[in-house]
């Protein structure tokens, strides 16, 4: 297909598992496949245990020691990252693909100045004279802090606010001009107004730098007007994928539907002061409560059928861009 020719990133049949102390493997990702076009923003939606952070880490092979990619390929700009040697990998990390971690207060070195942390990234990938390096660091920081670049550069992380720390992380990630940024819950720990601000930064960077982005979040509301496509993960599998407009407006998988319903809608609150319960999804998505066979969502699903317990549904294309893994759509 012509699509594959131009894809920036093509993940094929990715399987990741974790060994626990008892030696029992836990499957964190099962057969995840998707593609990302240059400049595209893919929103990955998932709750804890969905494997969304595992996905972020495995794309750059940054899994913890007990995590293992057991199967699949990650083609980035034509090269399989899973086969790359350590030097090649080091050259890709931070330079071609950047990762922005969840907790800005933990992802920065506590006793290094912000400016130096950005400079280190530049220095790791380009051998530049000191003066040029300094100037480049200044420029990079200035793109996210147009007004107070100097002060921020000399500050230590503990002297910065959450939003400022997140901006420093963004500066690190764009320093070497990557073509893909993977952001794992980059706004989860921020205030709502700061959250909006950071989303705005991402938005403008994308326009300026023509970046592709994988934006991982648990909050579907953040993706509207931001992501081009949405991919919903549950229990380590893709349950729904499609154009953001379609998935957000008319979710099809029972999980996606239920998830969207469980989010409070302040504007739709009845005027008489009466409080109504939220349509919550029963149970939880802890690995231990996932079924060993059949559809992973089956125990919590309101529409479950006998079939759901027996085997796993496959991703079925419905409409132009949307695909859902649910037997309801198998004909």
């Amino acid at each position: 297909m012509g699509l594959e020719m131009t894809a920036l990133l093509a993940v094929q049949d990715l399987h990741v598992s974790y060994r626990s102390r008892g030696g029992i493997a836990f499957q964190a990702l099962t057969g995840v496949s998707f593609q990302l076009m240059p400049g595209e923003i893919l929103g990955v939606l998932g709750e804890s245990g969905s494997g969304k952070s595992t996905l972020a880490a495995s794309l750059l092979r940054l899994l913890p020691e007990h995590g293992q990619i057991t199967k699949g390929s990650v083609l980035f700009e034509g090269k399989d990252i899973l086969q790359a040697g350590s030097v090649e990998l080091q050259g890709i990390r931070g330079s071609r693909i950047s990762l922005i971690f969840q907790e800005p207060s933990l992802a920065l070195h506590p006793t290094m100045r912000a400016g130096e942390q950005v400079r280190q990234v530049l220095a790791a990938h380009e051998s530049l004279p000191k003066r040029v390096l300094k100037e480049k660091t200044r420029q990079v920081l200035a793109t996210v802090f147009p007004e107070e670049e100097g002060r921020i550069s000399h500050s230590y992380p503990h002297q910065l606010s959450g939003g400022q720390r997140q901006r420093v992380l963004i500066a690190q990630s764009i320093a070497c001009g990557p073509s893909l940024i993977i952001a794992d819950e980059p706004t989860a720990s921020l205030d709502p107004t700061t959250q909006m601000e950071i989303l705005g930064v991402f938005q403008s960077l994308r326009e300026k730098l023509d970046l592709a982005m994988i934006f991982i979040t648990h909050n579907p509301a953040l993706l509207a007007g931001f992501a081009d496509r949405v991919l919903v993960l549950y229990g380590g599998r893709i349950v729904e994928v499609g154009a953001a407009a379609t998935v957000l407006a008319s979710p099809q998988h029972p999980y996606t539907k239920a998830l969207f319903r469980s989010v409070p809608r302040p504007l739709e609150r009845p005027r008489n002061g009466e409080k109504v319960k939220l349509p919550a999804i029963p149970g939880d998505s802890l690995p231990s409560s996932l079924p060993s066979e059949g559809c992973p969502f089956e125990p919590r699903c309101a529409d479950r059928m006998d079939l759901c317990r027996k085997r796993e549904p496959e991703l079925i294309r419905i409409g132009g861009t949307q695909a859902v893994s649910c037997f309801k759509f198998e004909s």
């Binding site: 709502p192 909050n219 579907p220 509301a221 509207a224 007007g225 957000l248 989010v263 302040p266 739709e268």
Partner: peptide
């Protein structure tokens, strides 16, 4: 406040 209602409307 990102609301899912707005999100779907926007979408």
């Amino acid at each position: 406040t990102p609301s899912i209602a707005q999100a779907t409307r926007l979408a």
